[in-house]
């Protein structure tokens, strides 16, 4: 009986470890947009402003005034089309918190 009990403990430990491992694997990997290094003319904040201007303003005026760059407008359009604008919001929120 004692031998059986001594077997059970390591097995339980292994099962628990495997559980932890699978839980780690199951965690979704962050969206690449959250991790990638952005070029100098692209910011998360700029992408959001560009998206707002595409929706509610004059994006070309925004570019001409230097509020947003062409790259940010391109990225905003891409994000809206792919329904990924929320990722840029996440990135902006994170950067704001880091400030």
């Amino acid at each position: 009986m004692r031998a059986r009990a001594s077997f059970a403990a390591p097995i339980a430990l292994l099962v628990a470890l495997a559980g932890c491992a699978s839980a780690t694997e199951a965690a979704p990997s962050p969206h690449p947009t959250l991790e990638r290094e952005l070029p100098s003319d692209l910011t998360a904040r700029g992408v959001l402003i560009a998206a707002v201007l595409l929706s509610e303003g004059d994006v070309e005026r925004g570019v001409a005034d230097g509020l947003v760059t062409p790259a940010e407008v391109d990225e905003a359009i891409r994000a809206i089309e792919r329904d990924e604008l929320d990722v840029w919001v996440q990135r902006s929120e994170r950067e704001l918190a880091d400030d």
């Binding site: 070029p39 100098s40 003319d41 692209l42 910011t43 700029g46 760059t69 790259a71 391109d74």
Partner: peptide, 13 residues
Amino acid sequence: GKPLGSGNGGGGG
């Protein structure tokens, strides 16, 4: 330093 890098990389295309 936004415009200091290498042009319209990334979203520039």
